[in-house]
Design a protein around this nucleic acid. Structure first.
Lengths: 301, 301
DNA sequence: CCGAGCGTTGCCGAAAACGCAACGCTTCAT
DNA sequence: ATGAAGCGTTGCGTTTTCGGCAACGCTCGG
């Protein structure tokens, strides 16, 4: 697949990722000696040391960081060239690489990707679910074309493509008493035990801010960094969990779990942001998917 | 110097430039067969034909154009990486590649470059003098970091860094009667034979526009695409030539030739534009030189 | 109709990349 | 303290890639 012109870039990148020549060599299916020689040749040619040698392994120097950025950028650009040439020949194929926080894995992405692929078969997807900071880092490392994060702080090298305000939803079992009401207030929810996402997940910040200003005292019986776990938990009892809107599939019931808007004045809302690395030229499939995603998110509002 | 990772890029670029494998191979100091094989390997890997084969030579296909753009971009980026790493190590070296139209070769660049190198020894320059369209094309082909052109039409992929309005100057021999007057009107000049730049050079458009609206009839005894030639011509007789301001070294006399502002209401002015390719990340030396150039041009106003 | 110029191919030598085994070194646990 | 476990690195033989040489088939222009 990928040409050997960027072989050296993969080599160096592998060393940086694994932090050692031996591990990198193993991942690349070559011997450490060969890898070491390529690195030495490169350092000779550049006239600069790219890695600090420690007894434990390798750590990139400043020059190494520069080279790594170049290497990753170059690899991403080459991928774009390939898909662009493919488009030129009428075969609309390619891969869209997305990094997103966990809330979106459950319902949004499966649905939108299915919809997108109906209009664009031949486009494959690689979705990496991780926490907020990793999403932005994936963009910086050229591992992802698009990032979708909740409540992200603005950054100089990230350019937002779309922002959608996200209200909070309460998640509960289908048979839960609260499921009968169309709209909920927070004080209704607090009569039940709570299963909350922890701080690494979106929405928790909204809850904490609300509790801080409120006299209501929550009864938190479960805290987790897994939405999957929270959903499975509330299905079996009368506990209530919370999640941002797009992850919940509001109207319909799924696996015995449903969701309702929580409407409180004291409850703020934070934006869900679709973003890319500033200055990057995205592959055509990624741009199209960003367009589709924008439409879906806008009309869902 | 340059690593062999971008060897293939140079190969393909050479083919495109020379329009034939044999000529490209000669320029690369290899045999046509070797070059042909690299091209075939590349086309195999990309799954696309990059050149149309004609009996006379090779012409890039659409996919080939795409690849060429990528290749040139990649090469320029790699150069930037090298100079950036150099800066990291304290050795401030590198090359600034400039493309500019002819008017600027005479006095502006030699002076500014001399001044710049006093503050930044170790920075080398490559200045390519060519006509308007070639300047922009050089930016597009990543042959030049900066372009300086007179009266350029805006373009979507070019971003201007600075624009300075340029008035027209009359150029004449030191001993010319008009050289006694501090300010000239166009009708004064037209009493003498004229040596005009042709349409490929800046300023001619202003003159043509003026003559079209005026009842005055010019006596054009010489027309040339070389400012050098025009200057040398007017030195030996009473003819008058025209040039934009920055190229003339207004106050001082150089080689027996001097210049004066021409002040007419009917005479417009067009901007001299310093530009780069949009979205490009310029090497540090180029950015610094652009800064210096901006200051010089602004204060000269 | 022939020669000039082109891209292309088969075959062989040269050069670059790789694998293997071993060395010197630091770190950590016994 | 001391041996084991990692680590980067080196010498040397092997494999893969790349380039040179000569020749072929082709298209065009005189």
């Amino acid at each position: 697949m990928s040409l050997q012109y960027l072989r050296i870039f993969n080599y160096i990148d592998a060393i940086a990722r694994s932090g050692s020549i031996r591990k990198a060599a193993e991942a690349l299916f070559i011997t450490p000696s060969a890898l070491d020689r390529r690195l030495q040749d490169l350092e000779d040619d550049l006239g600069a040391v790219l890695f600090e040698r420690h007894a434990r392994g390798m750590r990139p120097t400043a020059a190494g960081e520069l080279f790594l950025k170049h290497a990753r950028h170059q690899r991403a650009d080459y991928e774009r060239l390939r898909t662009d040439i493919g488009h030129l020949q009428g075969l609309h194929r390619g891969t869209v690489n997305i990094a997103a926080s966990q809330a979106l894995a459950f319902s949004l992405f499966p649905d939108v990707i299915t919809q997108f692929r109906q209009g664009n078969p031949g486009i494959n997807f690689s979705v990496r679910i991780c926490d907020h900071t990793s999403v932005i880092q994936s963009l910086r490392d050229f591992e992802a074309d698009l990032g979708l994060v909740y409540n992200v702080q603005p950054s100089a090298d990230i350019s937002p493509l779309l922002e959608v305000e996200q209200r909070l939803c309460a998640v509960m079992a289908e048979s839960h008493p609260l499921a009968q009401q169309p709209d909920l207030r927070m004080r209704d929810c607090l009569r039940y035990p709570l299963a909350l996402p922890d701080v690494s997940l979106g929405g928790r910040m909204l809850l904490d801010a609300f509790f801080a200003r409120s006299s209501l005292s929550p009864n938190v019986v479960l805290e987790s960094n897994s939405f999957e776990m929270l959903r499975n938990f509330v299905r079996g009892n009368d506990a209530v969990s919370f999640q941002i809107q797009v992850g919940t599939a509001l109207a319909r019931v799924q696996d015995g779990v449903t969701a309702r808007h929580v409407d409180d004045r004291g409850l703020g809302s934070r934006p869900l942001t679709l973003a890319q690395l500033k200055g990057r030229h995205l592959p055509l499939p990624a741009m199209r998917f960003a367009q589709t995603l924008s439409e879906v998110l806008s009309e869902a509002e």
